[in-house]
Lab assay of single mutants.
Amino acid sequence: MQRVNMIMAESPGLITICLLGYLLSAECTVFLDHENANKILNRPKRYNSGKLEEFVQGNLERECMEEKCSFEEAREVFENTERTTEFWKQYVDGDQCESNPCLNGGSCKDDINSYECWCPFGFEGKNCELDVTCNIKNGRCEQFCKNSADNKVVCSCTEGYRLAENQKSCEPAVPFPCGRVSVSQTSKLTRAETVFPDVDYVNSTEAETILDNITQSTQSFNDFTRVVGGEDAKPGQFPWQVVLNGKVDAFCGGSIVNEKWIVTAAHCVETGVKITVVAGEHNIEETEHTEQKRNVIRIIPHHNYNAAINKYNHDIALLELDEPLVLNSYVTPICIADKEYTNIFLKFGSGYVSGWGRVFHKGRSALVLQYLRVPLVDRATCLRSTKFTIYNNMFCAGFHEGGRDSCQGDSGGPHVTEVEGTSFLTGIISWGEECAMKGKYGIYTKVSRYVNWIKEKTKLT
């Protein structure tokens, strides 16, 4: 034993070699072989497995989906700052455009905790909710729209109204504003409101030439003092309507412009014939205590009207009353817009006519005020429907199939267009061939041609 100890002390290297040989010859039971080890760690190889990531292109799944990435790591994937920024906006807080917040056709661009709407022409605001041009839906104005110097929408209202708090709607500024039905039992019968379409306001006024200088022999019209197929109006439903009495009662109609003036057809009036105007009328054979009678003290036909040349060209006249009318729910003026808007309103496509005229061709006159909704007829169809001249200051309205029309005794009465609950004068009943005849239409004086003249002559002093 002493000898062994001496050998170990003198030859430590020998001992180490012996131990190493023993270990190498022993069977290893701690580690699995290569094949079995792979069965336990069965993990798919990654895209760049075996390579240094710093030297390969980034992978979106590896960089940002398996674990949260930084902007720089995302930049490695896209290799483009702009594309990385677009991805980053949604990656950080989701897609803010998912709810489609942009209105009126706006395009949404996502941002971090926010979004941006790219608005089409005519709109602005956070969600493109603000109209900035009158060309689109009248700028959301209830009545009139004008573009300011910086191309912003400025709404306005006709006389007797003021802008509401929203700067879009119009509200009454006087007790009985024009064009409004205020009798409670008839307010439910107000005709369907007309909503502004998209309009090209630059070209809204037709490029028409008034044929002022045409000389033409007097034409022989049949029954051209021209509501057939209409309905009984309720008291106060058309408070701007008046009836004219002269040699015979209810020979023509008219509309209240203001307390002192009536507008009617020029062919209705004769110099030297006494005319009485009755406002607030409903049943011409009954006294309903809503009527107001006034005498006409002055007749002003349009300066281009000449019955000797043509009885229905420039067929418009103004009547001055001896005493002002007292405005109330049964006696209310009709609204008159400017030339541009009167023309736009007419193009809405349908209007209402009213009167006490004959209820059928050569038949009896109506006792109760009649009204009828009539569609506008395109000019080409209008011209083809008659052998008589249709001037540019006239328009056609009615039904091709016949059966409904204005008729004798309705002449001078109103053709009105309702705009968001307020009625505007767009025409004056003038003439036609018979009444409600198939293929024939009622012919009306186009008020847009005469609004400046009306307003100039009827100013209240």
Rank of each mutant, 00 (worst) to 15 (best):
P235T: 06
I275C: 03
A149V: 11
D200F: 10
A317K: 01
G105D: 06
Y305K: 02
N38P: 09
Y352I: 12
W261M: 02
V273F: 08
V273P: 02
E420I: 09
N313G: 06
E35A: 13
T264K: 00
A397T: 06
T81I: 10
K45W: 07
D322Y: 01
K234T: 09
S25N: 09
L189Q: 09
E159G: 08
F31E: 15
E116K: 15
Y312Q: 06
G402Q: 15
V447E: 00
K234A: 14
C141V: 00
P324C: 03
R43V: 15
Y161R: 04
Y91S: 12
F424S: 01
K247A: 09
W240C: 00
S148E: 10
Q237D: 05
A366L: 11
H289S: 11
F31L: 15
E165N: 09
I262Q: 01
C178E: 00
D212Q: 11
E79C: 06
N42E: 09
N80S: 11
K109Q: 08
E401P: 11
W453H: 01
S49M: 10
G21F: 10
G21C: 08
A173T: 13
L20D: 01
L460Q: 13
Y161A: 01
Q237G: 09
A26Y: 04
E27K: 05
L23V: 11
T194M: 12
K126V: 06
E66M: 05
P324I: 03
A233G: 06
W431T: 04
V263C: 02
G122R: 05
N104M: 04
A173E: 09
T218R: 06
I300T: 04
E193L: 13
S255P: 01
E231C: 09
E323N: 08
L130R: 14
F221G: 07
E286G: 09
S365H: 11
E76Y: 06
L327T: 05
D405C: 07
F87H: 15
K293G: 03
K152F: 09
I309E: 11
N80G: 12
G427E: 01
A26D: 00
V368M: 14
A366W: 10
A164N: 08
C382I: 03
F360V: 12
T290W: 09
F345W: 06
P301L: 12
V30I: 13
Q237Y: 10
K45G: 11
S114P: 04
D93C: 04
S114I: 06
N343T: 12
R298G: 05
L23W: 07
G439C: 05
G21T: 15
G363Y: 09
N138A: 11
T426Q: 02
C69L: 04
A380C: 07
N222P: 08
A149N: 12
K51F: 05
A37Q: 09
S156C: 04
A307T: 10
W356I: 11
P414I: 12
T264H: 01
V447Y: 00
G13L: 14
L318H: 01
N59I: 05
E82L: 04
G105Y: 07
I17Y: 13
C155I: 01
I334A: 03
R162F: 10
Q237H: 08
E231I: 10
C155E: 00
Q237N: 06
Q2A: 15
N138P: 08
L376H: 05
T190Y: 07
Q370C: 05
S411W: 14
D33W: 08
R62Q: 15
A173C: 05
V451T: 05
D212T: 09
Y91Q: 15
S350T: 12
T417D: 03
A366G: 12
L20S: 00
V377K: 04
E401D: 15
N80Q: 07
E10Q: 07
V296M: 02
T381F: 13
T133L: 08
H302K: 02
N213F: 05
A337N: 01
V331N: 02
S25F: 15
G230L: 13
N313W: 08
E433P: 10
Y201N: 11
Q370T: 06
T215F: 07
Y47D: 13
C18N: 02
N343G: 12
R364F: 07
F360K: 13
R373E: 05
L376A: 05
I454C: 01
E67D: 14
P235S: 07
P197R: 09
N343W: 03
G253H: 08
F251K: 04
A265M: 02
I112T: 15
F176S: 05
L24F: 09
P197D: 09
I299D: 02
I336K: 00
I443T: 08
E281W: 08
P235G: 05
R140T: 06
E456S: 10
I262S: 01
R449F: 13
L189D: 13
V92W: 07
G432K: 11
A192N: 11
C119I: 00
V77P: 15
T426N: 00
E340S: 06
V353R: 12
C134M: 03
M394T: 05
Y341S: 14
D110Y: 12
L372R: 14
E401M: 09
D410C: 10
N304C: 10
I7H: 14
K440G: 13
V359H: 06
R46M: 13
L130E: 09
N127E: 05
C170N: 01
T276V: 06
D212I: 08
E165M: 13
Y201G: 12
E27V: 04
V174A: 08
E323D: 10
T332N: 04
E61L: 07
R384D: 12
N245Q: 05
N343S: 14
C145A: 03
L163M: 05
L372I: 10
R364I: 10
Q241T: 14
T158H: 09
W88G: 15
N127G: 04
T190N: 07
N310F: 04
T426R: 00
H361A: 07
I334R: 00
K126G: 05
I7P: 13
E231S: 05
S114R: 11
A207K: 11
P414R: 01
C157Q: 00
D33A: 10
V77Y: 12
A250P: 03
G349C: 03
A266W: 00
L376Q: 06
D315A: 02
R298T: 05
V296F: 00
A337F: 01
F196H: 10
R180A: 04
L425E: 01
T386P: 04
I428N: 01
N151V: 08
N113L: 08
E193Q: 06
I443V: 08
R226V: 11
A26G: 12
E159A: 10
N80H: 07
L24M: 10
F224G: 12
F196E: 13
K440Q: 12
E285W: 10
N222H: 05
Q143N: 00
C28V: 02
F224K: 12
Y305M: 02
L244Y: 01
T186F: 11
R449L: 10
E281A: 10
K260P: 00
E142A: 07
G160R: 01
N393L: 02
C102T: 00
C28Q: 03
S411Y: 13
N36Q: 11
E124W: 09
K45I: 11
I136A: 12
V30A: 09
V195P: 11
C252Q: 00
D33C: 03
C128Q: 02
T342P: 00
S156H: 08
S49P: 14
R140A: 15
H302P: 02
A436M: 14
C155K: 00
S350D: 07
A164K: 08
P375V: 06
V278H: 05
S99H: 15
I214R: 07
P197F: 10
E323S: 09
E270Y: 03
V368Y: 08
S329I: 04
N393T: 14
L14K: 03
V56I: 08
K188W: 12
R384Y: 07
N328I: 00
D33Q: 07
E208L: 10
S49D: 15
M6W: 14
A266G: 04
